[in-house]
């Protein structure tokens, strides 16, 4: 851990970090919903989207939150009420726990975990628990089917994600996300050391597998069978109304942002700009200004990756359930195992 210029007591740091974490979760979620879900989707479908609230509808989000706050909260009589109420909170909790591991700068991280990769893979699966809780406790056939589908899908795509990350770990030689960023920005590619090496160049296959798995984990089309609104009426969310529904909604897009953050840390060089030289013989020389610029760079990369996720979402039809499972087990998993083998051989031989 590098020394900060000003010594802040631990409790002050903790409050600062938690506030930063709230911003890092909610700001991307708001940006994604407004820029991509409201505006980009509308333009792709030849309509204007929200235009009334604020200039170009930019206040629409506030209006929506205000609307959802005033909605009646309906819990079906047959539902398992305790678990029904807990489920959205568990999903939101998973998102907040995921952001802990993302580094935004040399000192601008929330927690410097040595097993960072393990941590985000483990915590990322907590949302499945929330979704299963929601699907089961609703006492609704649609919800039950949606919950089971979600579990099957998230299980199938957890593995390609784990194995794609393994390639990065082999190449970086560390499971610490801060270290992975450093290795990418100070590493060499084809013997040229001054430019750094974002892993997307050498782990391109891994990056593709990772992004496909992220698309499936977020249950975005073409992998949206669990919420399929035309056949399952939003699946596990059928019985939710009012603010509990909005919490599922916020968590979905906040998680999209966080997974894009993690993908940019693993594959795009994190808070460094690829192919530029920051004089990184000594990280402490750049630490003081990278702490401010780093989050902005991360935000840019995150928005770029979410743009791709949303682009695919808006322009592709839904897979069939068995096609989805077949794709994961018969194509992605053998491919990612082959990717690991090739990466390891090249790493050890060269």
């Amino acid at each position: 851990m590098h020394q900060l210029a000003v010594e802040i007591p631990y409790w002050g740091q903790s409050i600062f970090r938690v506030l930063g974490g709230l911003v890092a979760v909610l700001l991307p979620a708001g940006g994604i919903v407004y820029l991509f879900l409201f505006k980009m989707m509308s333009f792709m479908q030849s309509r204007l989207g929200p235009m009334e609230a604020g200039p170009f509808g930019s206040m629409q989000l506030l209006a929506e939150v205000g609307k959802w706050l005033q909605k009646e909260d309906i819990q079906p009589d047959n539902a398992d009420k305790t678990i029904f109420k807990m489920a959205p909170v568990v999903v939101l909790l998973s998102t907040f726990l995921l952001i802990v591991v993302v580094p935004f700068g040399p000192d601008a991280f929330f927690a410097d975990l040595d097993a960072g990769v393990f941590y985000f893979l483990a915590v990322g699966s907590v949302s499945v628990l929330g979704i299963l809780m929601a699907g089961w406790s609703s006492a609704n056939k649609y919800s039950l089917l949606g919950g089971l589908r979600a579990a099957g899908q998230l299980i199938a795509y957890e593995l390609p994600m784990v194995l794609a990350t393994l390639g990065v770990v082999i190449q970086a030689g560390s499971m610490n996300l801060n270290r992975i960023v450093e290795v990418q920005n100070t590493g060499e590619i084809f013997g040229i050391g001054i430019l750094g090496n974002p892993f997307i160049l050498t782990q391109g296959v891994g990056f593709l597998i990772f992004m496909i798995a992220v698309q499936a984990e977020l249950t975005q089309p073409p992998f949206d069978m669990p919420i399929a609104e035309s056949e399952l009426v939003s699946g596990y969310m059928t019985e939710y109304s009012g603010f509990r529904f909005l919490m599922f909604f916020i968590a979905e897009f906040a998680t999209a942002g966080v997974f894009a953050f993690i993908a940019s840390v693993l594959f795009l060089g994190g808070w460094g700009v690829p192919f530029t030289w920051f004089g990184w013989e000594n990280l402490d020389d750049v630490a003081w200004w990278m702490n401010v610029v780093g989050p902005l760079i991360m935000f840019t990369k995150m928005m770029g990756l979410v743009l791709i996720i949303m682009w695919v979402r808006f322009s592709s039809p839904r897979f069939r359930e068995d096609q989805l499972q077949t794709f994961a087990w018969k194509f992605l998993i053998p491919l990612s195992l082959a990717n690991i083998a090739v990466t390891a051989i090249l790493k050890v031989v060269f």
């Binding site: 903790s14 970090r17 938690v18 974490g21 709230l22 909170v89 939101l92 909790l93 998102t95 907040f96 726990l97 952001i99 802990v100 929330f110 927690a111």
Partner: peptide, 10 residues
């Protein structure tokens, strides 16, 4: 810090 974040989320 992980604990603080979960407390904040709740």
């Amino acid at each position: 810090n992980v604990v603080w974040f979960s407390v904040a989320a709740l």
